[in-house]
Write a protein that binds this DNA or RNA. Structure first.
Length: 302
DNA sequence: GCGTCCAGGTCTACC
DNA sequence: GGTAGACCTGGACGC
């Protein structure tokens, strides 16, 4: 195996570990984390069919990447790897406007101070959408089971312990019965196959969503048109596309809101919407950060 | 160990 | 447009 070292400079307002811990993705394969040493690990697929296992850490205003591959990486592959890692960690995204908005409100001044707001995402929109679909209507432990099965049973082995996320073509090539029995994705199985088939056939270009110039409302409708994706999933997929206009409510955040603002009393969605309406296009991100603020000061739940 | 109940989003049929 | 019921799994609970 060949080891390569790569360095990527990061902006001043970037916090590596708070980006890694921004939500549950870091604990879903093929991501994994070494909490003690603050290292994010995952494989990346590069041109020429090359798979590379990367251990990513941060020191002295730069990401340090230890990449392990079967063959030496070409200049093009190294460049591709840099781009993918920057994309996952949202390094190129400009948060100055968001931080300026947060500074206007006393209750949100901690956000720019803690340099939070970047939400970890997968190298591909396909992986993010499949994972989001796998979080719907089930416990987190079932989501972990589904995603672990998808990678170990349909991904490519990079080494003994790491598998890539399956490609749309691979997922499109399995039967609904396989997904139900082996992946444990239950009634979501036909939705996953339909999604993978449409992407593999070129009928649905998920990857263009990250650079889409559509107004957010239009993009939201496009995301919602995928079968198996409802309001919760679409709102949260949009956050991973850099659009923060929707809250993406699920039972956990509803409960969290009730605990923080309503003495634990059950709260209608319209009340939560009204609470965040003044924050316009940033409301989804401010909402998520407010609900998860305790993760940055106490032990995270994953 | 077994059976029952429930929580968790989305879809579809129906009003 | 709003709503009820079905979908499937795993965890909690009672026996």
């Amino acid at each position: 195996m060949i080891r390569s070292s790569i360095t990527i400079p990061v902006p001043r307002d970037f916090s590596f570990w708070r980006t890694v811990y921004s939500h549950g993705w870091c604990s879903l394969p093929p991501f994994s984390i070494d909490k003690e040493h603050e290292v994010l690990v995952r494989p990346f697929s590069l041109c020429g069919g090359v798979q590379v296992r990367c251990a990513i850490s941060c020191a002295n205003s730069s990401l340090k990447i230890q990449a392990i591959s079967r063959r030496p990486l070409s200049a093009e592959q190294r460049s591709q790897l840099r781009l993918q890692i920057r994309d996952c960690l949202r390094i190129g995204e400009d948060f100055s406007e968001f931080y300026a908005e947060a500074r206007k409100h006393r209750r949100y001044r901690w956000i720019p101070k803690m340099r939070v707001g970047r939400l970890l995402r997968a190298p591909t929109v396909f992986e993010d959408v499949v994972k989001m679909m796998s979080t719907t209507n089930c416990s987190w432990s079932l989501t972990e089971t589904i995603v672990r099965n998808l990678t170990t049973k349909l991904g490519v082995a990079v080494d003994a312990s790491i598998f890539t996320f399956p490609s749309p073509g691979t997922l499109a090539g399995v039967t609904e019965s396989f997904l139900r029995k082996e992946i444990r994705s239950g009634y979501r199985s036909p939705y996953l196959i339909e999604l993978a088939e449409n992407v593999a056939a070129g009928k649905l270009d998920l990857e263009s969503w990250r650079t889409s110039t559509l107004p957010t409302e239009e993009l939201y409708k496009t995301v919602l048109s995928v079968k198996g994706i409802g309001a919760y999933a679409a709102g949260n997929i949009l956050k991973l596309l850099g659009r923060y206009d929707y809250l993406g409510l699920d039972s956990w955040v509803r409960k969290q809101f009730a605990t923080l603002f309503r003495n634990g009393r059950k709260t209608r969605d319209t009340i939560i919407e009204k609470h965040y309406r003044p924050y316009g296009k940033w409301k989804g991100l401010l909402f998520w950060l407010e609900m998860t603020r305790h993760w940055y000061t106490t032990e995270v739940p994953f």
